[in-house]
Design a protein around this nucleic acid. Structure first.
Length: 512
RNA sequence: GGCGGCGUAGCUCAGUCGGUCAGAGCACUCGGCUCAUAAUCGAGGUGUCGCCGGUUCGAUCCCGGCCGCCGCCA
């Protein structure tokens, strides 16, 4: 089903009423690093993110501010774009669900489901809170009243809605998940979905008549699609569903959806079922990750006052850590899958240990010694270097981890090469020796370590790895050539001017 | 209430389809080095793998119950 060499990766589209926070950034940085990795290995890659702009909440907050929903959406979508630009997010497309192409795709896809007989008119009946303009489950009520407007009785309301016959897809969903055990990862999340589907599935109401801020239902004037069923289709819109059939079949279903655990049901049940109902294949992979939990009592002055993680804007951390330092924390310190602790202190510790002390300091010491012992001209590595075999292992381990969507493990694997490089220098002590072939060989090896690390870490640290290249005298960028050639030992040519420069990652002091 | 997840070294987390599986990084201690961003290199782990039972020759890993934290419930 999956075509090797083709990688389509998505983030959820973010609800435009939210302000960008580090939870959004977490998913987006990982998607970006995965996209960069796949480009590095030469895959055809398409990386999609965007904003979800319909729904009652957007309409309401626009009304409160006295602006149109579209104006409200425009303003907030721009904030997400700005946040991602600041974080070096290399998206290929930024989709907005209010775009005409998306309306076309939604109407086309759901019309196909309708034509197939799996969307039917039915009556929805249940407790309704007039203040919320929303239905509740009986179980959600508090003493027969709205759980939000406590003390306010709900009314019973019945509404004619269009229902997606999800109940008809139970077996097909089970077949999909059981036939392709890797479709939903990690395994624990897959089991959750299996358990849910096995309980039996109810049909779902997918249209609303109570608001008009949405995609109109083509066969039913006065109805718009409920925001979730419009939003999911963005993944199809962006690759040309309904407008560019050939482009669509190039990318679908070779998709990797990255999602947080709170939206599993939408991505692992409703979305695949909708696709099946429209005659399309379900997604190739859904990668579910946990949440960042706000740990540690204090977040320092930088983020102090943030009671909730969703109050922390990415920009608040960039002054301290830089873009790459920020990215590195989310890729290296959080393992993709389970929940992880977010703390400022941990972020500082990781930055200092891995970026300042290991990578940054290695660059500093090597460039200094090259300056003193080699007149500032970097020598070539030794073909028979003891590090050559290590490098091959590191490349293999790093590749395997990125392919498995395990950025933390990938970076851990890459950092082994840095440690080995530092150990080689300790053993050889070129700063003590007279200039000559031995010193050249060791320093050449160290420069080659830096070159390789710059290549392998480029998905995580796009701008600082370019700077490493520049400092060791290489033209272009670590991503100019693809694996495996670029990762073969001996790529550093030698004879290049090496520049010491300021510390790449200034150590962050924690005293005071 | 229903369904599900988590609870492993000071910290953040891996891992075990039951038998050298008790691990990594950080922190810490000691020693070396001084090219380097007080960086680096080497050595050092005495943790009841949440609690109580059960299955088993043997459980941290399986089963049951309990406690704590968390998520979803259209």
């Amino acid at each position: 089903m999956a075509v090797p060499g083709r990688f389509y990766v998505t983030t959820p589209i973010y609800y435009v009423n939210d302000a960008p926070h580090i939870g959004h950034a977490y998913t987006t940085v990982i998607a970006d690093a995965l996209a960069r990795w796949h480009r590095l290995v030469g895959d055809d890659t398409f990386f999609l993110t965007g904003t979800d702009e319909h729904g009652l909440k957007v309409a309401q907050s626009a009304e409160e501010r006295g602006v149109s929903p579209q104006a409200q959406a425009n303003a907030n979508a721009a904030r997400f774009r700005a946040a991602w630009d600041e974080l070096d997010i290399s998206y290929d497309d930024f989709i907005r669900t209010t775009e005409p192409r998306h309306h076309t795709a939604v109407q086309t896809l759901l019309s196909a489901v309708h034509d197939n007989g799996d969307i039917e008119l039915d009556t929805y009946e249940g407790p309704y809170c007039v203040s919320c303009e929303a239905y509740y489950q009986e179980s959600e009520l508090v003493d027969g009243c709205c759980p939000i407007h406590t003390g306010k009785p709900v009314v019973r309301l019945a509404e004619e809605n269009w229902f997606f016959r999800l109940s008809r897809y139970q077996q097909r969903l089970l077949d999909w998940i059981e036939t392709d055990p890797a479709a939903i990862q990690p395994e624990g999340k897959r089991n959750e979905v299996l358990g849910f589907v096995r309980q039996g599935l109810d049909d779902v109401s997918i249209t609303r008549t109570s608001l008009d801020w949405g995609v109109p239902v083509p066969w039913a004037p006065g109805h718009v699609f409920y925001v979730w069923y419009d939003a999911l289709i963005n993944y199809a819109t962006a690759i040309g569903y309904g407008t560019e059939p050939e482009r669509f079949t190039t990318w679908w279903p070779h998709v990797h959806h990255l999602i947080g655990k709170e939206i599993i049901r939408f991505h692992c049940v409703y979305w695949p079922a909708m696709l099946m109902a429209a005659g399309l294949d379900p997604p190739h992979r859904v990668h579910v990750h946990g949440w960042l939990l706000l740990g540690g009592e204090k977040l320092s002055k930088t983020v102090h006052g943030a009671a909730r993680l969703t109050d922390i804007a990415p920009a608040r951390l960039l002054d301290d850590f830089g873009v790459d330092g920020f990215r590195f924390h989310f890729l290296r310190d959080q393992s993709f899958g389970p929940d992880g602790e977010f703390s400022y202190e941990a972020m500082v510790a990781r930055y200092n240990a891995d970026l300042a002390n290991n990578l940054g300091n290695l660059l500093s010491r090597v460039t200094t010694v090259v300056d003193r012992k080699c007149d500032g001209i970097g020598p070539a590595p030794r073909p028979d270097s003891p590090l050559a075999a290590v490098a091959a292992e590191v490349v293999a381990a790093t590749s395997a981890a990125w392919d498995a969507v395990a950025p933390s493990q990938a970076l851990e694997a890459t950092w082994r090469l840095i440690r080995e490089g530092n150990a080689l220098l300790e053993a050889a002590e070129p700063w003590k020796a007279e200039p000559g072939p031995d010193v050249d060989g060791v320093l050449g090896d160290a420069l080659e370590v830096l070159r390789l690390v710059a290549v392998l870490a480029s998905p995580a640290l796009p701008s600082t790895t370019r700077e490493v290249f520049r400092r060791i005298g290489l033209d272009g960028s670590p991503t100019d050539r693809v694996l495996p050639e670029v990762a073969a030992w001996g790529g550093y040519p030698g004879g290049r001017p090496v520049e010491k420069g300021a510390p790449l990652f200034p150590r962050i002091r924690t005293d005071a």
